[in-house]
């Protein structure tokens, strides 16, 4: 059992807690392959998803995870509720809590909102992404996908490519993967990598180009480029970004044969990844999606089963 009420960040997750979540996920994934893909473990519990920022994919994944465990699910999205009528976050949460729910799954554009909500409710709170802060379940599902493919994490060389500074996924990885014994390499333009990061955590290194490190990599994770940032001073053009920080077959030729290629989705094909990457064995992007449900089942079960 996790002896905690909430999952807000990977930063405050111990190695033992992370390993328990990953271990439990193997059991949950097996359920998804059965004829009846549902177990009665959370019968009678209620999970509320509260998405102040739209994300159909993550919300669906959480909802399915809760349903596979027999919990009831209610969904609130910013567009469809009184949040657009100027209701405060606190009022929204308190009102839903008054309907008796056991867990909130929160997505918000501002950093710290899930943590704030955790402080004002007795229900469990799971952070489904808050601004540039963290996205712990994405990091955990990525880590599970790596563990399932590579059978270990210790000593693996894992690169994350893209806008590291503004990515909550990269941030959650930064706290999680080194804790589990993996080496992390941030690849991107200098303007998009936190300054002096390698001095903070000895397992983190920095590279300016994929070509500098590709031969040593076991895993390469691409971050989605936020198209609204294009033509900002950070990126000059999509074509240039693809040439420098995208992956194509030519760059991949120098990589290990069994390197796995990951992306939290949705992919901008032709920007982060060349379209010819789509059909490669090395591409595990859809496995990540499946594993997302299994990891979220593990987290919901571990948080709610002891309450």
């Amino acid at each position: 059992m996790l002896k905690r009420k909430d999952l807000i960040s990977t930063k405050d997750l111990t190695r033992e807690e992370a390993e328990l979540i990953l271990e439990t996920t193997f059991g949950m994934k097996e359920i998804l392959q059965r004829e009846v893909k549902k177990v009665p473990s959370l019968k009678g519990k209620t999970v509320a998803t509260l998405f102040f920022e739209p994300s159909t994919r993550t919300r669906t994944s959480f909802e399915l995870a809760a349903k596979r465990l027999s919990a009831d699910v209610v969904s609130f999205t910013a567009q469809a509720s009184s949040m657009t009528k100027g209701e405060t976050v606190r009022d929204t949460v308190k009102n839903i809590e008054a309907m008796i729910v056991d867990a909130f799954v929160i997505r918000h554009r501002s950093e710290g909102i899930p943590n704030f909500i955790a402080g004002i409710t007795d229900a469990s709170v799971i952070n489904a992404g808050d601004g540039k802060h963290e996205h712990p379940t994405q990091a955990l599902l990525d880590t599970f996908t790596i563990l399932e493919r590579k059978k270990k994490l210790e000593g693996l060389n894992i690169a994350i490519v893209g806008d590291i500074t503004h990515s909550r996924v990269a941030r959650s990885h930064m706290f999680l993967l080194p804790k589990l014994g993996a080496n992390l390499i941030f690849v991107g333009p200098k303007t998009m990598i936190p300054k002096d990061i390698e001095k903070v955590e000895p397992r983190i290194k920095v590279a300016g180009r994929i070509e500098e490190v590709i031969e040593d990599l076991d895993v390469i994770i691409f971050l989605r480029i936020q198209l609204e940032r294009i033509e900002s001073p950070l990126i000059s053009s999509l074509k240039e970004y693809h040439n420098h920080f995208g992956l194509n077959l030519t760059k991949l030729k120098r990589a290990k044969k069994d390197i796995i290629i990951m992306h939290p989705g949705p992919v901008n094909w032709g920007v982060e990844l060349a379209p010819e990457i789509m059909n490669l064995e090395n591409n595990v992007i859809l496995e990540q999606v499946t594993n997302g449900v299994a990891v979220r089942m593990a987290i919901l079960f571990l948080l709610l089963s002891s309450r």
Binding site: M1, F26, G27, K29, L69, S305, S306
Partner: peptide
Amino acid sequence: SLYRDDIGIKKVIEVRKSE
């Protein structure tokens, strides 16, 4: 473990993979 009738009563429930 996911079918137990003492989830929430028993403190430690370990989930292992069925095969």
